[in-house]
Design a protein around this nucleic acid. Structure first.
Length: 837
RNA sequence: GGGGGUGUGGCGGAAUCGGUAGACGCGCCGGACUCAAAAUCCGGUGGUUUCGCGACCUUGGGGGUUCGAGUCCCCCCGCCCCUACCA
């Protein structure tokens, strides 16, 4: 018998698949389809570590098994290749981001190829290619024409040192997280997408998809639908008024003051002269803190604020209440103003306590409202016509009252904000728009797309702070397609989220240059049946993509209301990192354990092991290429899924790969053993082990519980190894269920047993329910709930016989002797419990 | 503060309906092979106690329901992820 040489076998079959185009997407449309999709990666310079392929391996098993089950499978991979890191790397190396991106893609692709993933590489796409972003621009124009893209002057995070705008998540404590450069708020004209118009639909659509409840909940919270009322308060002694939003209009009679956001447009006008100085000082202080910093403060942070000197008239009772400004009221939510009812709102309560404002109870219940806000239900008091009603009744009554008098109305408010869609960077999609002299944006005709990214010498913002594309002076000069007059191009680019919003559609017909996707093919393949990726995309990518999809659906471009029918999040892989007291990280091979203490091998200084996310900077990454080299891609694939449930995080242990490798070695030996023959007859136990494994693996294709399915295959191989004879048909079925997990080895064994076609399209084995059945079962015998023995009985044995046999066991008789039997329980095939007193 | 998740041997994890807790793998221990080691193969492996048969304990902690609880109910504790004054 030849030894199992994983290097030769894996290289051989990877070449075979590539030459024969084994994984080309089938073209006949008579069979059922299965579209299984990985969240495509950003091709970073660091390459893959073993954490990345966990999801890819899982989807590969599903894809390969589904092919064998007779499905047409769409299994594809691409690159989310626009984005800032490539741009920064390019500046560092004096190269072009395109070249950096191409280089990184090449590395990623080689690493993925070594894992034997069954992608149809002819459908590969990259969001940064003009053939692709032509259609990203086209979708933007569809949004623009539908009135869902608009421009607004809004504050952005401007980093003067880098000459660029930064995303919110890149700024912390007023500094750029990577370099520590100061970031300031600057107002700039930005493109926005009206995602808020789809807020309701985005919430409702969640009910129709098969996603983890946690992710749905995160999206619901992000969208933040809340029902309430808008109420107009007049400013006393002035012609002005302002609107407030509240979810508790029933507590309006408990209003003792109002609060405007410091940025509220009315603040300047209504502040009285004697308060002007204090208000200006407070607003300046708040302005120094970014919105994000304000938000990141804990709820229990001390409340700050300032009285404006002005008063508002409470429309329900005509009372004059002071108007304050405070940063606990956010300008960007609702109308940027609230009425305060400190008796029944915790935030208002804290504020009232801090500034000595009155607290008036209007709902009965709870302890003294001078001590704490009461937010529970109860009969209303001191509320005129609301007295005696509960919250629901009072809300209904007050909204009717307000509506009748034109003082307010019921409404629904969303936390979701419109999507800031422009970036002042180079490496992104240019906007397909030109501006007339008067600033009117005009779409570039579809026939002229794509608007290609121009070449510029320096990819920095201009001296006067315009985006890098403003340096492409000639490129900027365009003509207005409607009038023929000169016009200038938009110099912002789209955010990285744009390309990933629709890539799953482009995979359907990536080669078509006349349409973004073929309509008939789209109807066949959509929706994505299984979408696997990290939970970190719960709110941004997955919400943006759903929004675009719903717009495309409304415009009649796609056939399904939701893009991703089933979503699954794979857990993150962690590894042990070692850090000394000074905070320096050490490589695992630099440390050792001496007398129970982990120390640096070289210096003897103590280091502290910790389980952390795999990261280059933490010196704890494990490279998949090393695993493929030492143990083989098949062993590595198995280990990735055997570690534990797919959705859980897990600690990487390279010794575990050695374990799955030993399993493959045993399988290899078994398949080559001469005890395997066409005439061999399997024992019932061996038969059952095989059919159990078939069943579990088949179920796992749906449930994604691969860890237990792999364990059942191990059980079979262990038993078959011990068996005297093994039928060839067993090995034949075994190889087929192993094939999705360890495809290279399976191909080799499949060929060795006389098959001339790839195992890829071999029929999936079926389990036989009869073979799973047992005729003799072991029944546990308990006395008063304690295990005292066990008996083997026929599955269909009569209860009386089983109980008699149980009582006859010496170890059981011992415990019931001299006692009174008060109850006898027999659960067929499982347990006997003899209760004594 | 809010939302979601989770807690089982030395470690990763099994346990379909409330029915023998610890499958499978890692690690460890013993044996075979070897001049020796590595690799490989075979066997053992929750804890305490016992020469042994066995007994007792054991699913984060405490209560409860039940003939029977890792699983159901109540209270408490720990850890992880997300979120952050959204009126």
């Amino acid at each position: 018998m030849e030894p199992y040489d994983h290097r030769a076998i894996e290289a051989k079959w990877q070449d075979y698949w590539e030459e024969r185009e084994t994984f080309a997407t089938p073209t006949d449309r008579t069979r059922p389809k299965y579209y299984v999709l990985d969240m495509f990666p950003y091709p970073s310079g660091a390459g893959l570590h073993v954490g990345h392929p966990k999801g890819y391996v899982a989807t590969d098993v599903v894809a390969r098994a589904r092919r064998m089950m007779g499905f047409n499978v769409l299994r594809v991979m691409g690159w989310d290749s626009f984005g800032l890191p490539a741009e920064r790397q390019a500046d560092k190396e004096g190269a072009h981001p395109r070249d950096i991106t191409e280089r990184n893609i090449k590395t990623f692709k080689l690493q993925l190829r070594r894992l034997g993933l069954s992608y149809d590489w002819k459908r590969e796409l990259a969001t940064s290619s003009p053939e692709y972003y032509k259609w990203t621009q086209w979708i933007f124009l569809e949004l623009f024409k539908a009135g869902l893209a608009f421009q607004a002057e809004i504050p952005v995070n401007w980093c003067p040192a880098l000459g660029t705008v930064l995303a919110n998540e890149e700024v912390k404590d007023g500094r750029y997280v990577e370099t520590g450069d100061l970031v300031e708020q600057r107002r700039m004209k930005q493109w926005m997408l009206k995602i808020t118009a789809y807020a309701e639909r985005l919430v409702d659509g969640l009910d129709s998809v098969d996603w983890p409840e946690g992710i749905k909940e995160m999206q619901r919270h992000w969208i933040g639908r809340s029902e309430g009322a808008v109420v107009r308060f007049a400013v006393a002694d002035r012609a002005d008024s302002f609107e407030i939003f509240t979810t508790r209009p029933d507590t309006l009679f408990g209003c003792t003051y109002c609060v405007l956001a410091p940025e509220h447009p009315l603040v300047g006008a209504l502040t009285t002269p004697d308060q002007a100085e204090a208000v200006a000082a407070y607003r300046a202080e708040v302005g120094r803190r970014s919105d994000r910093d304000r938000m990141s403060q804990a709820v229990d942070a001390p409340k700050t604020g300032c009285f404006t000197g002005a008063y508002a008239i409470n429309p329900v009772n005509g009372q004059r209440v002071p108007i304050w400004i405070a940063d606990y009221v956010l300008a960007s939510y609702g109308s940027g103003a609230v009425f305060a009812c400190p008796a029944h709102d915790e935030r208002d309560h804290a504020f009232a306590r801090a500034f000595g404002l009155p607290i008036v109870r209007v709902v009965e219940g709870g302890p003294d409202v001078a001590e704490a806000a009461y937010t529970g239900d109860g009969p209303h008091v001191a509320s005129a016509f609301l007295d005696g009603l509960d919250i629901t009744g009072a809300k209904r009554a007050i909204i009717t009252w307000l509506t009748d008098r034109g003082a307010g109305h019921g409404t629904i408010q969303y936390r979701l904000r419109d999507w800031l869609f422009s970036r002042q960077r180079y490496w992104g999609e240019p906007f397909p728009l030109v501006f007339r002299d008067d600033g009117t944006p005009v779409p570039v005709p579809v026939g002229d797309l794509p608007v290609a990214l121009p070449e510029i010498a320096e990819r920095k913002a201009t001296e006067d702070g315009r985006p890098p594309l403003a340096r492409a002076v000639a490129w900027m000069q365009a003509t207005d397609p409607t009038t023929g007059l000169p016009a200038v191009r938009e110099t912002n680019t789209m955010p990285q989220w744009a390309g990933s919003c629709w890539y799953y559609l482009r995979f359907i017909s990536p080669d078509r240059s006349d349409v973004p996707w073929d309509r008939e093919e789209e109807r066949y393949w959509m929706p994505v049946d299984l979408y696997v990726g990290g939970a970190e995309h719960a709110t941004l990518h997955l919400l943006y993509a759903r929004f675009w999809h719903q717009v495309l659906y409304d415009l009649g471009h796609v056939s399904t209301p939701e893009p991703f029918q089933r979503l699954y999040n794979q857990g993150m892989i962690h590894a042990t990192s070692y850090r000394d007291a000074a905070g320096r990280y050490w490589y695992p091979e630099e440390v050792e354990v001496r007398d129970g203490v982990t120390v640096s091998r070289a210096t003897g200084v103590e280091v502290f092991p910790k389980m952390e996310k795999m990261s280059k900077s933490k010196y704890n990454v494990v490279n998949p290429d090393d695993m493929c080299e030492r143990y083989g891609a098949d062993a590595m694939r198995l280990y990735e899924l055997f570690m534990g449930p797919l959705e859980d995080g897990a600690l990487w242990e390279t010794s575990g790969v050695a374990g799955t490798r030993r399993f493959l070695d045993r399988l290899w030996r078994l398949a080559h053993d001469e005890k395997v023959s066409a005439s061999a007859v399997a024992s019932r136990d061996l038969d059952r082990a095989l059919h159990q494994a078939i069943r579990r693996v088949t179920d796992a294709v749906e449930s994604l519980k691969f860890n237990t399915a792999i364990s059942d295959m191990m059980v079979y191989v262990n038993e078959a190894t011990k068996a005297a004879a093994v039928p060839a048909a067993h090995v034949d079925a075994l190889v087929r269920i192993v094939a999705p997990f360890a495809p290279h080895l399976a191909e080799e064994l499949w060929a060795a047993s006389g098959h001339h076609e790839s195992v890829t399209y071999a029929p999936w084995p079926e389990w036989d329910e009869a073979k799973l059945a047992v005729d003799l079962v072991t029944v546990a015998v308990q006395v008063s709930g304690k295990l005292r023995g066990q008996i083997d009985v026929a599955v269909d044995a009569a209860e009386a016989d089983v109980l008699a046999a149980a009582k006859a066991l010496p170890d059981v008789a011992r415990w019931i002797e001299g006692k009174q039997l008060v109850r006898e329980v027999y659960v067929p095939g499982r347990i006997v419990n003899l209760v004594v007193r």
